[in-house]
Design a protein around this nucleic acid. Structure first.
Lengths: 240, 240
DNA sequence: AACAAGAACCTGTCATACAGGATGATCGGA
DNA sequence: TCCGATCATCCTGTATGACAGGTTCTTGTT
């Protein structure tokens, strides 16, 4: 193929659905639509863009898959608040097709979450500090119930991300949630001794306390230790 | 609403398309399909899942939007290699709806990319080192041509991400590419003096040299400086 | 002014149709 | 036997029409 520098983005000629997706996102941009705002009905868009309702529907489905809009029976499509659902599925797909391994995800999480706790220590509100401490406490209380423990663990990391006051951090942490629910039990089961399990809980408590105390170095250090421990647990379980 | 802890994931009852998406992803998982492998035809899936072809098509479109599968006229749907296209659109949507601001994206990029260059310095192959140096050189050569300069800049950061040998890092860097193409010119125009522009190029060269020399601290430091400079440029341009 | 009933609108799903691209089987020739 | 061209077949992209059920707005009543 002769190298032509031109790149056609989402809208390839001949792909009506792609073109329509482009038209709709342009509409959102130009009309400055905000989350909750309603889009025109499928019929109106179809007439306006000179395509069949089929095409508009497939474009809507595409945007809904990326959580850019929300669909519901009878109602008109609305603009979505940002949500990590789609990213979660993308990551899961990468892992299930062996394009990403769990270790690599943990490396990225470590990078991001050590930064998150440092920011959280500096920026958290008192309510957030309380919530984070409470979740660490809930983890200890749920030590005998892995499912509950995992849920609290995920909520703990999500709360930290929110306290960092940067929605992009929260989005990325959320993106790893899907695959984490699938690998977390492996890590937990590989911690066979009471000491190993106690250590994991205690580390979370240390993180929570450092964030509550407003100490970014301590928080980062504890989070880093948490990841050392977790990666080790996964490796010892034989996870590539 | 009474707090029910149960969360229904993608597949809500009554939503045939959602159910079908679930069935297809399960199929991918259970049959261990790899990128390039072909899925059953729409007609076959429709019959097997007892739904109309319409529903299968909308499910396919959803998966294609997330770049989990690839569609093409006449051909059967195939499994996709991981790709940041969908994430790019999600981020752009977040920015355009004021749910994310550019500063927050740069904070995340700084966190990630300072780590990326450290890893790249340790792991890059000689070919990658050459490529990275070449791209820095190309940036200097294109100083008079902003469009070309930007393209080289993006390619530079992408090459570093690849050299980190962690596809998740590459994925995240790619996710910011879409919005970056929209904000980059603002930052460049705000560098009004020849010195400011020279500094930006020189910083990229320092990063490239540190990575080529295998010096992670130097590389991280230079990257951090690059982001200090970039954030300042954007702020001085009035970008929230 | 509050409210309730009904009309009008909208989405979810299905069936059918057809143009044009892709693929594989078949058959003739070397 | 092997290669290559041809063509039937399969497959996707798009359009149209239909209908069930959910939502919203209007209108008329109290």
């Amino acid at each position: 193929m002769i190298g032509i520098g031109l790149e056609v983005a989402v809208e390839m000629v001949g792909d009506l659905v792609g073109t329509t997706i482009g038209a709709i996102t342009r509409l959102i941009r130009e009309q400055d639509l905000m989350p909750g705002d309603r889009l025109p009905s499928e019929a109106v868009l179809a007439k306006e863009l000179q395509v069949s309702r089929t095409v508009v529907r497939e474009a809507f489905r595409s945007l809904a898959a990326m959580r850019i809009i929300e669909l519901a029976t009878g109602k008109r499509a609305t603009i979505s608040p940002i949500d990590h659902g789609a990213m979660s599925l993308i990551i899961e797909h990468g892992v299930h097709t062996d394009q990403i391994n769990v270790q690599q995800i943990y490396d990225v999480r470590r990078t991001i979450e050590t930064r998150i706790v440092a920011l959280a220590a500096l920026r958290r509100t008192d309510e957030e500090a309380e919530e984070i401490l409470a979740l660490a406490g809930a983890m200890r209380a749920a030590m005998a119930d892995p499912a509950q423990l995992m849920e609290n663990d995920l909520a703990f990391h999500a709360a930290l991300a929110r306290a960092s006051r940067n929605p992009v951090f929260a989005l990325i942490v959320g993106a790893f949630q899907g695959i984490t629910t699938q690998t977390w039990p492996i890590g937990w089961r590989s911690r066979t001794t009471a000491e190993a399990r106690e250590l994991m809980i205690a580390t979370h408590e240390r993180i929570a306390e450092a964030v509550a105390a407003g100490d970014p170095e301590q928080a980062s250090g504890a989070m880093s230790m948490h990841f050392d421990d977790s990666v080790l647990a996964l490796i010892s379980a034989g996870l590539s």
